[in-house]
Simulated assay, not measured.
Amino acid sequence: MKRIADRLAFGLAALVIAFLLAAWIGSAIPRNAGWHPHPQGIEIMLETNGVHTAIVMPLVTPQKDWRPLFPATDLAAPDRPYTHLAISWGEREVFLNTPTWADLSPLTVLRILAVGGDGLLHAAHYVRPAPSADLRPLRISEAEYARLVQRIEAMAPLPGKRQRHPGYGDHDVFYDAPSRYTALNTCNQWTSDTLAAAGIRTGWWTPFSGGVMKWAPQPAQER
């Protein structure tokens, strides 16, 4: 029994190391390698909490008004002068039942790794967010922004055709969304895939937040 247990432990350790190595290599290989910022373009931001990433966009521009699709009336605090919208995607159980990372159980992690889980969109509204090491601005062209909008719209069920869930605070909310969360299709991979679909430079495979954020330079004052 001890020999079997040792082999299982060794195999698990080897699998974890292989996953981490693949993530490091995959995140270092660029998609849209020739992309460059557009100084006169639209400013979006990439946000991280160290584990999870989100795409932050102006709430209203001449190209897109997000308010009909993600209305502030869905929030507990709808009357603030919101200026930006942060969109991310993740696993339903983790989003709804783990308000802090300390609440994430090993059984939930094992289930996600083994069989995956349902997806959920997270929409957070912000008032004039300031650039920082965890909130990094990118200037993209109008055409790139149009493709980014199209990608997000395609994944967001319309109001009246989706279920809404309370967020972590009074300025955010969750919505049911299509797609399946797996060890290969993580929340951070969703961020990279969405950016790549818009033509923005990012890594090929980015299961961890660092693999996404490495492609967005820190603001000068934060370096």
Results as ranks from 00 to 15, higher is better:
90 G>A: 05
156 A>D: 09
133 A>E: 13
125 H>R: 15
184 L>S: 14
208 F>K: 05
189 Q>T: 10
201 R>I: 02
150 Q>L: 11
196 A>I: 04
39 P>Y: 08
76 A>V: 09
104 L>Q: 05
110 L>V: 15
91 E>C: 12
23 A>R: 02
56 V>T: 07
115 V>Y: 12
202 T>K: 05
53 T>E: 05
3 R>H: 13
84 H>W: 10
164 R>I: 15
206 T>K: 04
85 L>N: 07
190 W>H: 02
135 L>T: 06
188 N>I: 08
88 S>H: 06
105 S>L: 13
214 K>C: 08
55 I>T: 01
85 L>M: 12
122 H>E: 09
176 D>H: 00
40 Q>K: 14
180 R>E: 14
46 L>S: 10
218 Q>Y: 05
128 R>I: 01
77 A>H: 13
71 P>W: 12
37 P>C: 01
83 T>S: 12
59 L>S: 06
181 Y>I: 08
99 P>D: 11
14 A>N: 08
29 I>G: 07
187 C>F: 00
63 Q>K: 00
22 A>F: 11
9 A>D: 06
186 T>P: 04
8 L>K: 12
14 A>C: 14
55 I>C: 03
179 S>F: 13
52 H>C: 04
111 R>K: 15
69 L>W: 02
86 A>C: 03
163 Q>L: 07
188 N>W: 04
83 T>W: 07
108 T>I: 08
210 G>I: 07
130 A>E: 15
89 W>K: 11
159 P>W: 12
130 A>R: 15
162 R>Y: 03
71 P>I: 02
118 D>Y: 07
10 F>D: 13
181 Y>N: 08
38 H>R: 05
38 H>N: 11
71 P>L: 14
169 G>Q: 10
119 G>F: 01
93 E>W: 02
122 H>D: 04
119 G>P: 10
113 L>G: 10
164 R>H: 07
4 I>N: 13
174 F>R: 05
89 W>A: 00
105 S>A: 12
208 F>H: 04
128 R>Y: 13
136 R>V: 00
213 M>D: 03
60 V>C: 01
182 T>M: 11
92 R>Y: 10
70 F>H: 13
181 Y>P: 01
